[in-house]
């Protein structure tokens, strides 16, 4: 005879099975969580291992660092997240410190050269000076590193930015937009190793003499982006753009 399970005993049975299902599910959950914990511990151990074995390579080898940064961004990990954001990762690597340290060096060079270049420095020149400042033991620094450090400086709102002028990367350390004429002059200065005369703007860029004169005057007097040379052999009067000149300190 088939039991339909409609009596009081049926309630008991159902309750019992519900209970056992609940037990089973919590047991399953627990095992999943344990499993996850184990995985995380493993992952963390792997990262610690990775960090300790590769920390030096990350700090000293630019191409390794670049590959590492790319790996991080592809899996959505920010190696710069500080300890406060739960970034024990950054702590392990010391990369955050490395990047901030580079940021400080960038600021150092931008500020100390600002007086002569008016707050614009060519990327290659900046890297050259940073390398000099860091000494040989600290390994090379790439454009990528500099750009990354500059982006970590953004919260300071000091106006540090990488801009492209005439196909060349320049780092700007003043809050100042370059107008079109200034950009043209900077490009010309870079082609000429720093020296610009009004004639170049008239002949090669088709500017009127007045426009050339006014633009150079602004660069000189208003912006302090160039220096005057009144002893020029050919023109008598030339302008020198320090940010386009290469200096040996």
């Amino acid at each position: 005879m088939h039991r339909k399970g409609v009596g009081l005993a049926a309630f008991d049975r159902r309750e019992q099975s519900n209970r056992s299902f609940a037990e089973l599910s919590s047991a399953l959950n627990k095992s999943q969580i344990d499993h996850l914990h184990a995985q995380l511990t493993q992952f963390r151990a792997a990262l610690v291992h990775f960090a300790s074995t590769h920390r030096d390579s990350i700090k000293n080898d630019p191409s390794f660092r670049h590959a590492f940064q790319q790996m991080c961004s592809s899996i959505g990990v920010d190696p710069l997240a500080g300890p406060r954001k739960g970034g024990w990762w950054a702590e392990l690597l010391g990369l955050g410190d490395w990047q901030y340290e580079l940021g400080v060096q960038i600021v150092d060079i931008c500020v100390s050269t600002r007086e002569r270049n008016g707050g614009m420095i060519e990327m290659s020149e900046l890297i050259r000076l940073i390398t000099k400042l860091r000494g040989v033991d600290h390994g090379a620094v790439t454009e990528d590193d500099v750009a990354r450090s500059i982006s970590t400086l953004r919260p300071l709102k000091a106006g540090y930015q990488v801009t492209v002028v005439g196909g060349r990367k320049m780092v700007r350390s003043v809050v100042k937009e370059l107008d079109e004429d200034q950009t043209t002059i900077l490009i010309l200065a870079q082609e000429e190793g720093g020296r610009v005369v009004e004639d170049m703007l008239v002949q090669r860029r088709g500017w009127t003499r007045e426009r050339a004169h006014a633009a150079m005057d602004n660069m000189l007097l208003r912006d302090g982006l160039c220096w005057l040379d009144e002893q020029d052999e050919h023109e008598g009067r030339a302008y020198w753009v320090p940010s386009a000149m290469q200096w040996d300190l």
């Binding site: 000189l220 220096w227 005057l228 040379d229 002893q231 030339a238 302008y239 320090p242």
Partner: peptide, 15 residues
């Protein structure tokens, strides 16, 4: 110093 080899160093600057 290197600035001594920069031509405009020998001109009084109007700025």
């Amino acid at each position: 110093p290197s600035i001594h080899s920069a031509p405009p160093f020998f001109t009084e600057q109007p700025n």
